[in-house]
Write a protein that binds this DNA or RNA. Structure first.
Lengths: 231, 231
DNA sequence: CGCGGCGTTGATCTCTGTCAATACTTGTGG
DNA sequence: CCACAAGTATTGACAGAGATCAACGCCGCG
């Protein structure tokens, strides 16, 4: 595990609220794994023995439709966790997961994790707090999304991935634009159009990544056209 | 506490995934309280010693803006919990809460609650599972919302509040339409128009409540106009 | 009686989803 | 190596939903 991975864990939505020692504590029953693009991680209906933290790359969650197609349910990336709800609940995975890009995952044994909580209730409390905050964060984030139009939503999304750097930046993305569009809650056509509007702002794109010429410029763009409520 | 209150707790988003005994276990350090419309429940910045389960009525969460106005952040009702994230985290409340209608709350002592988890880690695990499920539920629900248009969103919302009864039903609402609109993620004007469209379906409204003439009819309405995905 | 909030209704505009046509990419087979 | 086919991305035209702006009615209050 790379040093920067601790950084990822520390800022992951699920663990953000945890003190650093507690995050280190996760190390007990984990194992890192690498997956090539297209690899199945788990399948709908399987017993949820593990959950995963994405250290790097993109994962897509999907359900197989009766007709044999696949309906993408969610698209996740670095720092996010998948399968933890099923693991905690003891339910089978309700969806299937597959690597949308080459990726690196932290695989966490659910049973060990539970044991850890039972033996060390303080740890459980910390996790609970963290999940609670994650929930709050999610709700806020989702409400926010409704306020921003498509290009700003993309810009905001890219900025979140770029951290808070100042200059130029390169953001890795899944190859299929369809997946990014899905993640951002819009149709691929809208995504395409919105990207076109961002091009004059120094945002360019090819297969697997987007490059932002000037992060600050984009930030200013996202902030414009806010309505000043209150008075 | 009324018998039906146990029912409320049992079906509350936060506790839905808990076995009945565990829910009963909550009773230890709770106290019921009544609040008149307009009463402040807690204020932004206060130490979060308690969190609350709404047994009946409506609560609005808001932030005071620099200019002195109030920005409504959320609107919650029966079965929902407020303040639990702050309580678990040991942070101060990030928003203020006020009764939007007369209401009845279950006030839960955060410190006791934590102690309970520390003494009985299984309980903690159950709560954790429950929160996780709530989170998953939220995400699904939110995605669903995007699919429904305004009148159907309202209808769906009313139906959820009415339980699964069959005949006519009366749903209590906050007086200010603004708050309901906010809860449903639309502008008051849109809410008004959408309600107009529901009137022919037997939905009428005056100050504090909506009455549904025929629940089943409304259900059918919500289900119409779904696109058949997959193929 | 007149003022101010709030809710409704109407007109218009913007955004995004949908449908359709066109380009691009990738992989296959000649 | 090229031609062609299939899947994917882009671009255009159009329509529908909801936001916004504005006007009006309703009601309570000074």
């Amino acid at each position: 595990m790379k040093a920067s991975d601790w950084q990822v864990l520390q800022t992951a939505p699920l663990f953000r609220a945890m003190p650093a020692e507690a995050v280190r504590g996760l190390a007990g029953n984990k194992s890192e794994c690498f997956m090539k693009r297209g690899t199945a991680i788990f399948q709908q209906g399987m017993r949820a023995d593990y959950f995963y933290v994405i250290l790097e790359g993109w994962i897509k969650l999907f359900r197989l439709t009766p007709a044999g197609g696949e309906a993408v349910v969610g698209v996740f990336h670095t720092g996010e966790t998948i399968g933890e709800a099923a693991t905690f609940l003891g339910d089978p995975y309700p969806v299937s997961a597959e690597a949308a890009t080459d990726c690196r995952l932290l695989m966490i044994d659910g049973e060990n994790f539970k044991q850890r909580i039972l033996k060390d209730p303080d740890f459980g409390l910390v996790i609970l707090a963290s999940v609670s905050r994650h929930l709050k964060y999610l709700v806020e984030h989702i409400e926010q999304m409704k306020v921003l139009d498509a290009p700003r939503r993309i810009a905001d999304f890219l900025l979140r991935m770029s951290g808070t750097a100042g200059g130029p930046y390169v953001v890795p993305l899944p190859y299929e634009k369809f997946l990014i569009a899905r993640r951002l809650g819009m149709m691929p056509e809208s995504f395409s159009r919105a990207m076109a509007k961002l091009r004059p702002l120094g945002v360019t794109m090819d297969r697997g990544h987007v490059t932002i010429a000037d992060v600050k410029l984009l930030q200013r763009y996202v902030e414009t056209q806010q309505d000043e409520a209150e008075l």
